[in-house]
């Protein structure tokens, strides 16, 4: 395994104790594999990845284990994490106008990655940066290097950020909502470049999204998160074909499908995702919104159990295989 996360917990101090946003997550990513993590905002999907890279917010308490290429990341000193971030592990965030440093030219923001991690000369770093922009099919790449972020479109900024994460040929790329702010055509182009990357460079990919559709085309395996826990994980095809957890079923049902009946409103899951401060460790966090909840769901925390090869579900209503 390239990355193996087990029992990961992330909590922030709050009035009268702490609030856990990630409550015991187990994940594994093999080299060259694409793992999709799906969940609503606040489900802890981003916090999981930020925490193992030492990027959780100030005061975060991280426990559990995350082993990357044989090294334990939890508790690793920042100086060593810095050496991994941007080099062995690339990170891409959702595009925002302030996602790139506004007062630095694109070329400098790209080049500094190579200067810091590889000790490259500024000239060599620029040349490599230019090459990476070409690979990502950014129009007029040489001209872009001299531009500032506000002079670029959202799609271009996002590709620059991806280029930045790929410059050091990382073994793992973590993309957190990489296409969310973009329009559909740009979204498709970026997902295509991820697919190429996976196929040609053998980069493992963790794709975090609230949108099952984004994950569907790319992921080998999918983990569904709810209220800080993984409620279902399975190979992608299996998850889409035979979802078992009621939450996964709800997500899939609310997804527009080409082969579904045209027109008609899409069913949505009733209610709101819970406030992390209000989630207890007794009972299933999804039970209040669940159509098939039974008394046990309110009292006991369902444990993940295998329901098929590599298919695990945490639900009292699902019989283990």
């Amino acid at each position: 395994m390239l990355l193996e996360v087990s029992g990961l917990r992330v909590a922030y101090p709050a009035r009268g104790g702490e609030v856990a946003v990630v409550r015991g997550v187990d994940l594994a990513v093999a080299p060259g594999e694409c793992l999709g993590i799906v969940g609503e905002s606040g489900s802890g999907k981003s916090q999981t990845m930020l925490a193992i890279l030492g990027l959780a917010g100030p005061g975060a308490r991280v426990s559990g284990s995350a082993i990357f290429a044989g090294e334990e990341l939890v508790g690793m000193p920042q100086s060593r994490l810095q050496g991994l971030r941007g080099d062995r592990i690339g990170l891409v965030f959702q595009d925002s106008i302030t996602g790139l440093t506004p007062h630095m030219r694109i070329g400098d923001q790209l080049a500094e990655v190579l200067v810091v991690h590889r000790g490259a000369s500024p000239g060599a770093a620029r040349a490599e940066a230019l090459q990476m922009l070409e690979v990502l099919q950014i129009p007029e790449p040489a001209y872009r290097l001299g531009q500032y972020p506000h002079e670029l479109s959202g799609g271009m900024r996002q590709r620059v950020m991806i280029a930045m994460a790929l410059l050091c040929r990382p073994a793992l790329l973590i993309a957190d909502e990489p296409t969310t702010a973009l329009d559909t055509t740009v979204q498709a182009a970026i997902l295509r470049s991820f697919a190429k990357l996976k196929a040609h460079a053998g980069t493992a990919l963790v794709l975090i999204s609230h949108d099952l559709g984004v994950v569907a085309g790319l992921a080998d395996r999918v983990a569904v998160m709810y209220a800080g826990r993984i409620v279902e994980s399975a190979p992608a095809e299996q998850l889409f074909a035979t979802p078992r957890h009621p939450y996964t079923k709800g997500l899939l049902a609310s997804m527009p499908r080409l082969d579904g009946p045209p027109g008609g409103p899409l069913p949505a899951i009733e209610g709101q995702p819970p406030d992390p401060a209000a989630v207890a460790d007794t009972g299933c966090a999804f039970a209040p919104r669940c159509g098939i909840a039974r008394p046990a769901c309110m009292a006991d925390l369902p444990q993940p159990a295998a329901v098929g090869p590599a298919h695990r579900v945490a639900c009292h209503a699902v019989e283990p295989a």
């Binding site: 990027l55 971030r85 302030t98 506004p102 930045m164 994460a165």
Partner: peptide, 10 residues
Amino acid sequence: DFVRTARAKG
């Protein structure tokens, strides 16, 4: 956001 990006770059 760009500070988080800079940190993510290592």
